[in-house]
Each structure stands twice: as C-alpha cells, then as structure tokens.
Design a protein around this nucleic acid. Structure first.
Lengths: 199, 199
DNA sequence: GAAATTCGTTCGAACGCTCGTTAGAACGCC
DNA sequence: GGCGTTCTAACGAGCGTTCGAACGAATTTC
C-alpha cells in the first residue's frame, strides 16, 4: 500500500511541525490532526499514540541525518575536507529541515522506553562519528584544545543555527557552513609550521 | 517581610528545577508544589499562575546573568581579555546554575504577553553586548568571518555546554571557558603579523 | 450486469483522567 | 483576636484515547 505510507508520512510531517512549533508538552493531538487535515480519530489510524508519534518523528529525522552523513563523507578524503563536508551536511540539514531538527534538539528528552533507547543510540553513533573527524583533524596539527571540548564546541555552533538563521536559498547555508568550519579548523590549532622538520 | 521573599525565592527555585527537568509544557503545578514542600493551594500563595511562574523564573535568571556580566567585564580592559572574561562569566553561569539556564534556553519561547516582551528585551541587550565584544576583537585583526556568524558561533559553543558538561568543581568550568575562548579568538582570524609594520 | 459484501479508511461523540485554578476553613504566631 | 500563611477539597476545562458507525471503492455473488 503505497498510499498508506504516503499518508503516514504526511501525518508525521504534521506531528513534526506541531511539535517544533509548540514543543511536545504543549502540543495536542487535536493540533496535529488539524495540521494533517484529519479528525482526531482519523489521525489515530496512523499514529498509535502521542508518545510513539514523537518516537517516529525523531527516528525518521535521525535516519535521514545519518544517511546523509555517510553520503557527504564519501565525497571527501583528507581530514580537513571531511570535516568541512560534515559541517556542510549538518548545517544543510538544519536549514533544510528546521522543524525536524528543532524536534530532535528540543523534544528528544521527552522520549520514553524503547524509542528513547533506540534514538539515543543513533545519536551516540552520530556524535562518535563526528568526534573521530575532530581527532583526525587534530592529529594533523599541534592542538592544545581537548578533543572533548573541541567536538562539543563544533556541535554547539552548528546546533545554534536555528536560533538566528533565516536564510532563503541553499547557498546561504553553505556559506554559513564554510565560515563555521573555517573558524573551527583555524581555532582548534594553527597548522604545524614545517611539519617535515619535526619528524 | 524578609520571610516572604525568602519563601518566594524557594518557590521559584522549585519551579525552576521542575521546568528544567520536565520542560514547561510537561511540568505540573503539583510537581512544583511537591518540590517546594507545599500543597498546591499553598504554592499559589506565592505564584499567581504557571505562566507567570515561568516569567518570574526567566526574569530572575536573566537579571542574575546580566548583572554578573557587567561585573565580569569591568575587570578587563583589552578586547581580547574582555571577550575571555565574557566567556568565563557565561560558561560559569551555565555550570553554576544549570537549571536556570536550561529554562532560559528551552522554555523561554513558551512565555506570553508582557513577560515575553520584557524577557526578550533583556536577552536582546545581552546578545548585543556580546556582539560588541566580538566586533572589538575583530577590529584588532584581519577577520574574514562575518560578525553575525562569529557571534552566533560563540553563543552556540557556550550554550551547548549543558548538553555534555558534568563538572564538579569550578576550575573545570573555567578551563572549559579558557579553551572555548582560545578556540574562538584563534578561529575568528589569525592576529595580523607585525601590526606595527603595516601602519 | 446489478446487487450484495467486504475491507481499508474516516468520522462524530464520548470516556476517564489530569490539568490549572479557586473557595473556604484551619493553623500558628504576634 | 487578628492576620499572614497553609491546608483539604473540589471545580470546569481540556487532555489522550477509544468506540462504533459510516463512507467509498473494489470484489464477489447470482
């Protein structure tokens, strides 16, 4: 039934945008039903509960984010350009799907049970992947900054984007990504001058 | 009545910690009353409504944050050390009052009416103050990065701290602040080599 | 080929519960 | 005895959720 899945995605879209706008706790199933052009009971044909709707929205969003990451990283080889590709992808996702990312950032902690464990595991892997990129970048330089703090700072500057970014076209977002990765790469440490002389 | 104000602050403390833990939408007045060791009606003697409780919590937190900022900045003169003082203060506040900052970050958007306008105005001023510091830092160098993005990146890395920081003593926090400001100052642009030669 | 039937989908209406909030009485200190 | 403070108990509203019926387009039956 391709029609079913299409309408399920539409219901999840509605839940996503309502959660993003009002936050999970303040959103009601009636809000979501209205956004999905369905009656409340009609909505429940697709979403088993409010709690699982949040789980499905988060799962869908993180899966899209993770799949995009592998695609983006495969296009770069050197550590620096891999990190730039990562930032471009992450900021790109945030700006292209602001509602999805808002839910991940804001409402993921409201998850319970299995959904919580599953989504947290995906996030852990995503963060670990990013930390590896930071380590690779740091190994090319003499970095005085701890990997833990550097990684956190990188995620922080990227994840703050929804708070101020109001770009229209996609080139705005990649400009932001470019400047952020430049700030980070420059900041994490100056490139070792004459690395050959050290060896 | 000093006793009244003391107990009002205790009620606000309770509201703050419950809002921080469950988010505004999922928190109930019964939760807050239990945290304040009061009955529900007893709590209402101090807090007129849930909405205004949020406003009072946010107002109190932002006022503490802003007052601390002026104190911190008065201890430094040069742009670089002023920015370092700002980061130390901001990260310090986040780590010393994590519940208060979580509410500001997470639940401020749930404010309505006058409280919303007032709190947003305080925040606007705080951000503008920080942006001025970034501008002053950038004027000392040849910075290729836009002030807007640099300021946003700085706030992003600082505000992400609650997501990973689990420090015990205060020296941990100032270490984080030190590394973050170093990353930022280095990243925003390399200092102009031999500035005297240029003039 | 028309009538009957099935089944995926949607609905109006309601259930039980918890929410924010309040009334009115009781407590204890001056 | 008065007043600032706190309580028990309850109110109406709105919440998440469910029930049972109705829709419409296939599919079957005669």
């Amino acid at each position: 039934m391709p029609g079913y899945d299409l309408r399920l995605q539409a219901a999840l879209d509605a839940a996503e945008s309502v959660f993003a706008e009002k936050s999970y706790g303040l959103a009601t199933m009636r809000d979501i039903a209205a956004a999905a052009n369905l009656s409340v009971a009609g909505l429940y044909y697709y979403l088993p509960s409010k709690q699982r709707a949040l789980g499905m929205v988060c799962g869908r969003a993180f899966q899209a984010l993770s799949e995009g990451l592998e695609r983006a990283l495969s296009e770069a080889a050197l550590p620096d350009s891999q990190l730039r590709a990562f930032v471009r992808h992450h900021v790109g996702f945030i700006t292209v799907s602001p509602a999805a990312y808002r839910v991940l950032l804001h409402d993921m902690e409201a998850l319970e049970g299995e959904d919580r464990l599953a989504v947290h595991e995906i996030r852990r892997r995503y963060f670990a992947r990013a930390a590896d990129l930071v380590i690779a970048v740091q190994q090319q330089r003499t970095s005085s900054i701890s990997t833990r703090i550097a990684t956190a700072a990188l995620f922080g500057m990227m994840n703050w984007t929804p708070m101020w970014y109001r770009g229209e076209n996609e080139s705005d977002a990649s400009h932001v990504a470019l400047e952020m990765s430049t700030l980070f790469l420059r900041g994490v440490a100056a490139p070792a001058e004459e690395p050959a002389a050290i060896v």
